[in-house]
Design a protein around this nucleic acid. Structure first.
Lengths: 155, 155
DNA sequence: GACGTTGTTGCAACACGTTGCAGCAAGACC
DNA sequence: GGTCTTGCTGCAACGTGTTGCAACAACGTC
């Protein structure tokens, strides 16, 4: 239950390497292409853990290659989301927020006052999911849930 | 538990009239001013029920007065939110979404497929609020919660 | 290695919202 | 009605993300 450092890069774990290595093939299987621009974004993502905003990713790509075009990054992110490699939600300010290689489906908790963020685990989310499922037959997409409020420390 | 028509204007109820009428005085009490631009936005809001996006409100104001400036509208909305007259959240696409004269605190449910929206009542939200309160001492701002998923009809 | 398909890119324009700042005007006071 | 204070407006520039379109290039095939 640690806070989620927003720009939270860290080293890849070994089982992630396989995931990143397979991206090229997964694209090709679908008739999609492996371009230098996609390679660059995947390289950036593979050095990222936790959450990043779209703008962050654009900036990091630009550090590697200043000619990076934002729309290409956003379009590539859409593709990678279809492959399940990233997921996106919206931060408390409505900005795009991507999480990379989600181990398990989880939601997000944001403190309005201090800005800290936490993950809502699947277990904690279960009661939310169950409530809405029972009452309305609604299938909650937990990974897209962002709940805003005030954390213990700020109250 | 009716769906929330997104552009959902309808007539004001009588007890709302008092609320709208008092806006001027509530501003003045705080040393704030009652300007033609604010009058215009309040007029638009008073003919609105349910949910509107910021862009919607700008457009409706412009219908009344084509010289309306967006930043003024957004700044006025911030002020009105402080007075509790509107509340804002973020739609499934991250856009600003205002609800007018909230009768009771409530969250929102959006179907990813058909785009329909429902309100999560305070009672339904109670389990969400209670879970996070107990587990983390986190005070959920239900009115800012938007949950995305798939509704019964779309599954 | 050359060729053709067609998925992608780069670019320009747009949409929505925010911010900084100089000048204006609401409203209090005389 | 005139004056003063300071909250508000209008404007311009920016930040983030999306979209349409023509030209380009990945990659399967010969």
């Amino acid at each position: 239950m640690q806070p989620v450092g927003s720009p939270a890069p860290s080293e890849s774990r070994s089982d992630d390497l396989a995931a990143w290595g397979s991206v090229r093939d997964r694209l090709r299987e679908r008739g999609l292409r492996w371009t230098p621009q996609r390679r660059a974004l995947v390289a950036v993502l593979s050095q990222t853990r936790g959450h990043v905003t779209g703008a962050d990713l654009v900036e990091r790509c630009r550090e590697q290659d200043p000619s990076t075009i934002p729309s290409t990054v956003y379009r590539t992110l859409d593709v990678l989301e279809e492959l399940g490699i990233v997921r996106h939600g919206h931060g408390p300010d409505g900005r795009e927020e991507y999480h990379v290689l989600p181990d398990a489906e989880h939601g997000h908790l944001h403190c309005r006052d201090c800005g800290a963020a936490w993950e809502i685990t699947a277990e904690e989310g279960a009661s939310i999911v169950a409530t809405l499922e029972a009452a309305r037959g609604f299938a909650v997409d937990l990974s897209h849930v962002t709940i805003v409020g005030r954390c213990r420390a700020c109250r």
